[in-house]
Amino acid sequence: MKFLFGSLMVYAGLLFFVIGTLWRLRRWMKSEVPFSLTLFPLSGSTMGKMRSLTRETFLFSGLYREDRSFWWLAWLFHLSLAVIIVGHIVGIFCDRQQFVLLGATPEMSRHLSLTFGGIAGCMLLVSVAVLFIRRLSDPMVQRLSPPSAFFDLVLIGAVALSGVVIYLPGFQTDIGEIRAYMRGVLHLEPTPLPDNPVFVIHFSLAVLLVLYLPFSRMFHFGGSFVIRDMYYETPPTYPSPTENSRQGSFLVKRLYPASVHGGQDKEVCP
């Protein structure tokens, strides 16, 4: 039972994540972009656009300019999240020997891995708490926020908290056993779920987060790329080039067929 539960859960979660992500993107992408929505100023060169996209994606450059204190919060939150995700995958795959590749001794590598993981975990926990407090204490942001916005933060916070607690001295966790289990999962050779209750909570919540993510507002990272893709479009030039000019259904079709709004469909004022 435990065997079935642990392995099924994790693969179902990942499958949900992949399908959900593709479904969300597909839902957006199947609609046309009828007009050029380029947001200026825009670098004309591909390199310039790449630079701008990189700055936005990794440094949140727009937010940095707009609201410095919130930038620190949002950026550190996402940075610690990224470090933890990468750290989990790399750390489990390499059994914490990843820093050996950079010249460290196996003992040092284990130590570094633990230290970075610990720092990132605490950073995540603190930043998610501050994000939650910000949402609650700023009356404007609170009024803007639906319950789901608080739930998302609580869920991330719970995953982070349970993850940090595993390492606390009082919990006597056998990290080796957990890592062995996770390696089995990653290598598609699952073994029974370890008995540790804190780990079971951490693991279940993390899977819940992963499968819920594509269907929540936490999918904003996907949306932001779809939006930038529209904004970075090279504006039209005239006379229109003979090929590659915009082809949309609005060219041949009315936006609303008369059947929808019941209004007249005849041409007024030629």
Partner: peptide, 11 residues
């Protein structure tokens, strides 16, 4: 009709 509509509402 327009991609911007749902992606901007949902992001």
């Amino acid at each position: 009709f327009s991609r911007s509509f749902s992606v901007m509402l949902e992001t």
